[in-house]
Design a protein around this nucleic acid. Structure first.
Length: 327
DNA sequence: CATCAGGGCCCTG
DNA sequence: CAGGGCCCTGAT
């Protein structure tokens, strides 16, 4: 590993997210596995970003409150950034972090659902976030497949350690994602040596699709959910489980809950029906239930319940969860 | 030591 | 459309 690239603070930008805004529940997701591309502590998140071929360090600071939100974003880079570039970074961040999301109608539609209403109130202003690009998100999705969380972490570490770039800014040393063009030059054996197994082929093929322009995040954003689904499923190594995460996290479809994997099935069944892990509800029943109860906001609603249980787990509140997530 | 499932997906028949 | 195989790891 080369020594880290040193970044300098280039500019500071004030962001006023749409109120209500819960900084910590948005800027930290306890269900995500730890990744060396970011760090969080209450009120602050550091994040690396590869944007338009340039490596950035981002530091978000909470300088407001839930009802009067204000975020101070400082952007670090190797050299000066022009106005147009700076604006594009902010626009992209506002999109990825859903800073302008209006939660009013979502909240209002569950006035008569006391259970969910309580969770929404507890995490008032929390929004779903995708901290990375579509390409990066798909890389993460690939290392999640058919592996326990611990192994996913080690695969991600070795990929970032080999192909990523170490950045130092604000006293932190974090890894940034690789450029797809760089990964495209790696061969499959080289990747397999990093112990990512058969996923090496998926990493190669998905990378190739991005480098060759067969898939483009910006144009996909303007397309329908059905078109997005079709394009994503077409990628080698990307199947239904990965696609439904992308539709929700990356493309902001709040109803994207049509597929439930076995480990999620167990947790949902326990959370909503109190069943034991060995005896979960059938996936079709769960999907029907979520659709009937939460409608067009079903995934967003489930996100609130899901994040709540992972926050509570962090305080030792949910002992049964550890057995189901196998860290 | 062997066997197995895991935060899926592809391919085959 | 069901089911075997896939890289590797830790659990049993």
């Amino acid at each position: 590993m080369k020594r880290p690239l040193h970044l300098e603070e280039q500019y500071i930008h004030g962001i006023r997210p749409k109120a209500p805004f819960n900084f910590d529940a948005t800027m930290h997701k306890p269900d995500h596995f730890p990744s060396p591309d970011n760090e969080w502590e209450p009120g602050v998140r550091w994040q690396t970003m590869l944007w338009k071929d340039r490596l950035l360090g981002l530091k978000f600071m909470n300088v407001g409150s839930v009802d009067d939100p204000s975020v101070r974003l400082s952007v670090w880079a190797q050299d000066e950034l022009d106005k147009q570039y700076s604006t594009s970074v902010i626009d992209e961040i506002v999109y990825r972090y859903n800073f302008n999301l209006d939660l009013a109608s979502f909240t209002a539609s569950f006035q008569d659902d006391p259970e969910l209403q309580a969770v929404i109130a507890k995490w008032r202003g929390m929004r779903p976030v995708n901290y990375s690009s579509l390409y990066e998100y798909l890389m993460i999705a690939i290392v999640l497949q058919n592996a326990t969380a611990r192994r996913s972490v080690s695969m991600m570490m070795s990929l970032l350690g080999t192909y990523g770039t170490s950045l130092s800014f604000d006293g932190k040393s974090l890894l940034a994602f690789w450029k797809p063009r760089r990964m495209n030059r790696a061969n499959e054996e080289e990747l397999r040596a990093l112990r990512i197994g058969y996923r090496a082929k998926s990493v190669k093929r998905v990378t190739e699709a991005f480098v060759e322009g067969a898939i483009d995040e910006d144009s996909l954003r303007t397309q329908s959910k059905e078109e997005q689904t079709k394009t994503l499923l077409n990628l080698y190594g990307i199947g239904p489980a990965s696609v439904w995460y992308v539709l929700f996290d990356v493309f902001h479809h709040w109803d994207a809950l049509d597929y439930i994997s076995p480990w999620e099935q167990k947790i949902y069944s326990k959370l909503f029906f109190g069943t034991e892990p060995g005896n979960p509800l059938p996936v079709e029943k769960l999907v029907e239930f979520f659709d009937a109860r939460f409608g067009k906001y079903k995934m967003l609603a489930v996100h609130y319940v899901w994040e709540d249980v992972f926050w509570r787990r962090a305080t030792g509140d949910v002992p049964w969860l550890d057995d189901l997530i196998r860290l």
